[in-house]
C-alpha cells in the first residue's frame, strides 16, 4: 500500500522553490485532504453524465430543434440572427463597421485571453476563489464577461425586425424609426479624442499606482493597459452612439472607427 501512496507526488514546481516552506505545509495538508478517484470521483462523474443525459433527452423530447424553410437566397429572414453565441458580435455591428465588429474585436478578444496568464504577474489567488487578492484582474475580466453576456442578451431578446430595439412586451408589428441623424466629428477632433483617451489611459494608472507599473515592467504594462483600454472603448463608443448619435469617432479615407 505504501509504495502506491508515495507515487502520488507533485511535480517539481520551480516557482515554488522560494516558498519551499509553504509547499511542505501544503503537502502535508494536501495529503490529509486527498481523495481516491476510484470510486468516489468516478461515481460523481458518472452521476453527472447520467443527469446530463436525462436533461438532454427530456430537452430533445420537449423542444424540437429549429428548422425553417429551405434556404432561399431571394428572401431574407427579418430579423436574421446569428446563432446566439455570435449575436453579441452581430449586436456590435450596430455600432462598428464590420471589420471591427466582426474581425478585429473577436481576434483581439482571443489574443488577449491567450495573453492573460503571461501578463498577470500577481502570484496570489491561484487555485481558489479569492476576490480580495486579485481585485484588478477579476473586476476587469468579469466586466468583460458581463459585457459579452449583455450584448448577447440584447441581441437575442431585444432585437426585432430591421434589427431595431424592441422591448419584450412590444409587438414586432410596430414599425420603428431608423436612426437617421448620425454624425461624425471631423478627423482632427476624432484623432485628438482617441489620443487623449489612450494617452491618458496609459499614463494615469502609472502615476496613480507606481507599484503596479514596477511589478509589471514596461512591456506587460503596455499590453495590459492597451487591452483594458480597448475593452472599455467598446462600451464608450456604444454610449457615444446612444447618447450623442455619433456614428464614427474617427473618420479616415481608409477606415472608420
Amino acid at each position: 500500500m505504501g509504495e502506491y501512496q508515495d507515487r502520488y507526488e507533485f511535480p517539481d514546481l520551480k516557482f515554488n522553490v522560494q516558498r519551499g516552506k509553504k509547499r511542505d505545509n501544503r503537502m502535508e495538508k494536501g495529503e490529509k485532504k486527498d481523495m481516491f478517484v476510484w470510486p468516489d470521483l468516478v461515481v460523481m462523474e458518472f452521476l453527472t453524465a447520467v443527469a446530463l443525459t436525462i436533461i438532454l433527452i427530456v430537452w430533445a423530447l420537449l423542444v424540437n430543434a429549429p428548422l425553417l424553410e429551405v434556404a432561399n437566397p431571394g428572401i431574407s429572414e427579418n430579423p436574421s440572427k446569428a446563432p446566439w453565441y455570435f449575436v453579441g458580435l452581430q449586436e456590435l455591428l450596430v455600432y462598428f463597421d464590420p471589420w471591427i465588429a466582426g474581425v478585429m474585436i473577436p481576434s483581439i478578444i482571443i489574443i488577449c485571453l491567450m495573453m492573460i496568464p503571461y501578463v498577470d504577474v500577481n502570484p496570489r489567488g491561484s487555485g481558489r476563489y479569492a476576490f480580495s487578492l486579485r481585485k484588478f484582474a477579476l473586476i476587469n475580466f468579469n466586466i468583460g464577461f458581463l459585457m459579452w453576456l449583455l450584448l448577447i442578451l440584447t441581441g437575442y431578446f431585444l432585437r426585432g425586425p430591421d434589427w431595431q430595439l424592441y422591448w419584450p412586451w412590444e409587438s414586432w408589428t410596430v414599425v420603428k424609426k431608423v436612426e437617421d441623424n448620425l454624425w461624425s466629428p471631423d478627423p482632427a477632433t476624432g484623432l485628438t479624442g482617441l489620443a487623449l483617451y489612450f494617452g491618458l489611459g496609459m499614463i494615469i494608472p502609472r502615476l496613480v499606482s507606481r507599484d503596479f507599473y514596477r511589478k509589471c515592467g514596461p512591456a506587460r504594462y503596455t499590453i495590459v493597459m492597451l487591452s483594458i483600454l480597448l475593452m472599455y472603448f467598446v462600451p464608450i463608443k456604444i454610449f457615444l452612439r446612444l447618447a450623442f448619435n455619433i456614428r464614427y469617432v474617427l473618420v479616415t479615407p481608409w477606415f472608420n472607427i
Partner: peptide, 25 residues
C-alpha cells in the same frame, strides 16, 4: 470498492429516471 451511501442512492435514483426517460423517448 464500497460506494458511499449517498452515491449509491443517487445511482439508484438517477439510473431509473434515465430508464424512464429513455422509455419515454
Amino acid at each position: 470498492m464500497k460506494l458511499r451511501p449517498a452515491h449509491l442512492v443517487s445511482i439508484a435514483v438517477l439510473c431509473p429516471v434515465l430508464l424512464v426517460v429513455t422509455i419515454w423517448a
